[in-house]
């Protein structure tokens, strides 16, 4: 998360940034992992819009996210359109085309590649 905040601070004037909250990766009812137990991050699958808003709020506060955060609808429309689960990075260029798509997270989640893409897309200062 610190890497993303740094990226955001460095490029926020020249690019728009959004965190998009999608369905939980390791909720207690499916796929709970030891690290979350250790850190006391215990969350059920978020089914309703209110649940999503609640947990997304906790997510932003507890992880210290500085980027603006959006919340996917309960039917997971955006997650499915982008094959985003459990986490993934995209850069969309000015023409609305996908300029960078990371490999599926967690293995493919590499903020440094976003930075390289932005350097390519943005005119030199």
């Amino acid at each position: 998360m610190p890497a993303l905040n740094t990226l955001y601070r460095d490029y926020r004037d020249r690019a728009a940034f959004y965190m998009v909250y999608i369905q939980e990766a390791h909720p207690i009812d499916a796929g709970q992992v030891g690290d979350n137990l250790k850190d006391d991050v215990l969350v059920s699958s978020t089914m309703t819009k209110d649940e999503r808003m609640n947990v997304a709020g906790m997510w932003v506060r507890n992880l210290g996210i500085e980027l603006p955060a959006l919340v996917d609808e309960p039917h997971n429309g955006v997650e499915r359109a982008y094959t985003a689960w459990p986490d993934r990075l995209y850069v969309v260029d000015r023409e609305g085309r996908i300029s960078y798509k990371s490999a599926a997270g967690p293995f493919g989640f590499k903020p440094s590649e976003v930075q390289a893409t932005l350097e390519r897309l943005l005119p030199a200062e």
């Binding site: 940034f17 982008y82 986490d87 995209y90 850069v91 932005l118």
Partner: peptide, 9 residues
């Protein structure tokens, strides 16, 4: 350009 960071808690 828009950077999208998908994820969950």
């Amino acid at each position: 350009p828009v950077v999208l960071v998908f994820g969950s808690y």
